[in-house]
Amino acid sequence: MRRNWKFYSQLGLTIVLCLFIVVPVVMSALAGVTVNVFQGLSSGFTLRWIIEVLDLYTDSILLSLWIALVCLVVTLVVGVPLAYVLVRRPGRWTRLFEELLTLPVAIPGLALALALLITYGGVSGYRSSWLFILTGHVLFTLPFMVRSVAAVMSAMDMKMLEEGAASLGAGFWRRFFTVIVPNAKPGILAGALMVVTLSIGEFNLTWMLHTPLTKTLPVGLADAYASMRLEIGSAYTLIFFVLIMPLLIAMQTLADRGKRASKRIDTAEDTL
């Protein structure tokens, strides 16, 4: 097939747009390993900045990972049963609850943080602990878990699967853990990756909620940009990148696999 000028002009436009987005990322990453960014790449490459960031901010990075992990556990324990109830018992109240649940996504993180500060700011032990940040992260990420799990659950005719299991003698919890949860696994996995990614990268809320002793990775990043050499900020970005990319790729892969599974056609022959 001969390609005409339309194809090439569209290809060109696409490449230009991609470069527009990709080049700053590459520049920033390079800046993190350049000896002196103002002299350019000719000044040579170094790992010095990365080591410096790790020296200064390892605590923040570990705290972020820890919060993300605990946040994941909480959203799993709360979110999966919640999604089940929302799908299994649709009605006015569950609808209302779902709206409420989604609210933290819709309102600005700053407003949510302010509300938390006004309410619990006086509880000193709580205010100054990482649990305060965790609260914000759970509020913010829970709807993503619930939505993701509920989407898979509403596609699988849970009522009938449960009736089938119940007729075989399985009580509620056994049905839940042997039939419902395993079949909702794609949604749970997708939700889990989303929660971890969002929690690690969350800035708005966290910036308001943090104390000097409870700084997370993105808050540290802002800190580095504001108060240190550009190279250090860039090196920090590079580390953040390395942490978050595998998660994003895993998420994409999962989504693709889900799509392929639902596309698979029933090819078995009715020979019996």
């Binding site: 005719d157 699967l161 009736e163 089938g164 299991a165 009580g171 039939v179 395993p182 079949n183 696994k185």
Partner: peptide, 17 residues
Amino acid sequence: EKRRVGMVFQSYALFPN
């Protein structure tokens, strides 16, 4: 769960997992 009935449904209700 207690009645010991066997059920067969129009859309099978088999466990895909």
